[in-house]
């Protein structure tokens, strides 16, 4: 379960309101695309969901409980860049989630426990098509492969919510469409909620079951920071598998 309710959320910085009056009810398993012009609070909203920042006013609840104000294993994340650890191989990057969980002191697994984690990681790497590259370092991978690795890494802790900050922004068109299929497959399989920031409206509408558009509704030309952005459109789309079936 991963129901998210946002109630009257505000985020203010000194001299600037970024978000105002955001209220949302997102049922479990929804795929939300966050769209809108630059500087309208999409990333701030994602950071609030992530727990990297805390709201100035209002609450975000995950399954009825207020979010802890720091990132945790119930919320996975993939950034546009720098999401993977450059000093670890592909395989090590994926099992590190399990190692953090099972080995509090060393953060490293040995013997049977390690073998179990490796097996699990191999399965994920197989799904995202990185098995052949498991002993390479991230710098040796292409951009698309790095993002697939970042997604695999996030999936091993089975997060309730997956947050994606323009994950495909730096990829070429062909790689993007491969990544769409991959992401939809994983979303279907793991039954998690997904929030994805994108600058590409088409991408948002292709993938999401719900599109949230952020924009400023009030504007004071004398004080551009006086009013914040809010969710101006909250468009539910029909469920993806159904649409896929219709297209076939």
């Amino acid at each position: 379960m991963s129901r998210i309710s946002v109630r009257n959320l505000w985020k203010e910085y000194p001299g600037q309101v970024v978000l105002e009056r955001v209220s949302l009810e997102i049922p479990s398993g929804e795929f939300c695309a966050l769209v809108g012009p630059s500087g309208c609070g999409k990333t701030t909203f994602l950071r609030l969901l992530l727990g990297e920042e805390s709201p100035s006013r209002g609450v975000i609840e995950l399954d009825g409980k207020p979010l802890v104000a720091e990132p945790g294993p119930d919320r996975g994340v993939v950034f546009q860049r720098y999401s993977v650890f450059p000093h670890l191989t592909v395989l090590q990057n994926v099992i590190i989630g399990r190692e953090f969980e099972r080995s509090r002191l060393l953060g490293k697994l040995f013997g049977a426990e390690r073998r179990a984690a490796v097996e699990e990681a191999d399965e994920i790497l197989e799904t995202v098509g990185l098995s052949a590259h498991r002993s390479k370092y991230p710098a040796e991978l292409s951009g698309g492969m790095q993002q697939r690795l970042a997604i695999s890494q996030a999936l091993i802790r089975k997060p309730k919510v997956l947050l994606l900050d323009e994950p495909f922004g730096a990829l070429d068109a062909g790689t993007k469409s491969q990544m769409y299929d991959l992401l939809l497959g994983l979303w279907d399989k793991h039954k998690m909620s997904v929030f994805m920031i994108t600058h590409d409206l088409k991408e948002g509408f292709t993938l999401a079951t719900r599109v949230l558009a952020f924009d400023k509704v009030r504007l004071d030309p004398q004080a551009p920071g006086a009013y914040g952005a809010t969710v101006t459109y909250d468009l539910p789309l029909e469920a993806k598998p159904a649409r896929k079936a219709a297209a076939a």
Partner: peptide, 27 residues
């Protein structure tokens, strides 16, 4: 260090100590 790496480690459930010995120290 990219902020993203530290956030990522936290979303994988790492404690401060684990971040130190597995993410920051080796780099």
């Amino acid at each position: 260090m990219p902020r993203e790496q530290l956030i990522k480690a936290q979303t994988l459930g790492a404690s401060t100590w684990q971040i130190v010995i597995r993410v920051v120290l080796p780099q």
